[in-house]
Amino acid sequence: MEAGQLEAARALGFSYPAAMRLVIIPLGIRRVPPAWVNQLISQVKDSSLIYFLGLTAGQRDLFRIGQDAAANTGNESALVLAGLFYLLLTVPLTHLVNVVDRRLRQGRRVVEKPADPPEAAAAATATHETATHETATHETATHETAEGASRA
């Protein structure tokens, strides 16, 4: 947390508790969920390592199931399938973390704008910005899918 936020709140005349309650804590809370989802993603991936820590004979993780199937049949596609399952879990989570992160940083997609008494110029700018923004979102999504796949 930048000290500047607290200083700014104090300079406006907020007491220390009010500055904490209205600015610092809400800011802090917003930093947590993206980190949580990231953690979840890496735990899904790391679950394949549980084999090394030891499971009972009856317990097998996703990767192990795939490997056993491949060993039994001599067909590697079982491993590929296991990989696809990992992707199935992590790609949506990666998207989720991006959506959550962007939402927390930039707020709700601006929907109030048309309701605003719009001067023609402002309205034109707004429309343009929304369009640009959506293009950017799409690009991010494509990029993340590729990245998610390669990581998994």
Binding site: E2, Q5, A8, V23, G107
Partner: peptide
């Protein structure tokens, strides 16, 4: 706190509240 309400301060790093819209940055105080 009452003193500071009468003394406006502008910082080098702006120090706007990033989690609030521009409007809410002004309406909060």
């Amino acid at each position: 706190n009452l003193l500071r309400q009468q003394v406006g301060m502008v910082f080098q790093q702006f120090n706007l509240f990033p989690h609030l819209s521009v409007l809410r940055n002004l309406t909060l105080p």
